[in-house]
Amino acid sequence: MAGHDDSGSSDKKSSDAMDLPIFNAENLQSNMKVIYYSRTFMSIIGGVTAGILGFTGLTGFIFYLFIMAITSVGLTAKTGFSIRSYFDSWNQIVLDGFLGGLMSFVLFWTFAYDIVHIF
């Protein structure tokens, strides 16, 4: 998510000085897409991990929260801890795609759990 986002970041930064919304909508959208992809990827990986480790019940969902938290921290680190230069607000990085990944997580969790532990 570096490279072509740079123009967006420099544009966005200037809005701190005054209350003028200056950002590149396309770059913003591509950043959102990056969030969505990384969340999906992490939820699939997390689901397989949870299944192999044999989590059941609430533990698994807590593990999902944990995975999502790690993803958020990772994304924040990727922005160089200056979220405002890439996104509208910080809760986009924390909450976006949260529920979308849950379905994939449950599926892969079940799949791995069944293969490893049930049979």
Partner: peptide
């Protein structure tokens, strides 16, 4: 316990994320 028909439905909904990863936009 999940029947095979319902496992099909689970796949139908849960694989959407995987498709978005492997097939792109």
């Amino acid at each position: 316990y999940v029947s095979s028909r319902s496992w099909y439905f689970l796949n139908l909904f849960g694989l959407r994320g995987l498709f978005s990863l492997i097939l792109g936009e």
